[in-house]
Amino acid sequence: MSFENKVKHIIEALLFVSERPLSLEQIKSVLDTEKKAIVSGINELKEEYDSNHSFKIREVAGGYQLVTDAEYSPWLRKLFQGGRKEHLSRAALETVAIVAYKQPVTKPEVAQIRGVDVDGVMRKLLEKGLVRLAGRKKVVGRPILYSTTKKFLEYFGLNSLEELPPLDELVEMEQENADNEN
């Protein structure tokens, strides 16, 4: 077996077993070869899977992960979720969105933006592992700071926080809409 093929197969084995997304660095620490070789190995695997498999490699939370094609979700859901589709409440989505942009952020700051108390929602998000405690703010009362987690990226299928649209852009969209209306 050629060296390239071997590298490809090792990467495949690593991805196959790993439950978390594997970063390039993690793969490199095992393989001890150039990053370029690893990336090209991953790309080859991607091509192979795309043509003839029910799973693929997705880039998420700063790493690579083997996941199934969306096409097969109805059957997988039957086995693993009792057919249900889980989703977050609107309150949870709004709260986690604010944390994602403003992190690290305190609960009162999030509540200020939402106009409602976020105690219960934040606890839910902590339980789900979508946000984590990120120390304390150095102000009176030393309130706890919250940040989003890697699991947050994984849950929403994001590779990094940069994939979220910049807030300023959303403002521009808003103003354009207002201009169009006038």
Binding site: F16, V17, L66, L88, L93, G157, E174
Partner: peptide, 29 residues
């Protein structure tokens, strides 16, 4: 305040779409 909140409401909508997309994709169990 309204504009600020509106932005995050929009982001929440985007996240909702992402969530739906992502929930169709299964990782290793």
């Amino acid at each position: 305040k309204l504009l600020e909140y509106k932005k995050f409401k929009e982001v929440a909508g985007i996240l909702k779409e992402k969530e739906t997309e992502s929930s169709d994709v299964f990782k290793r169990y």
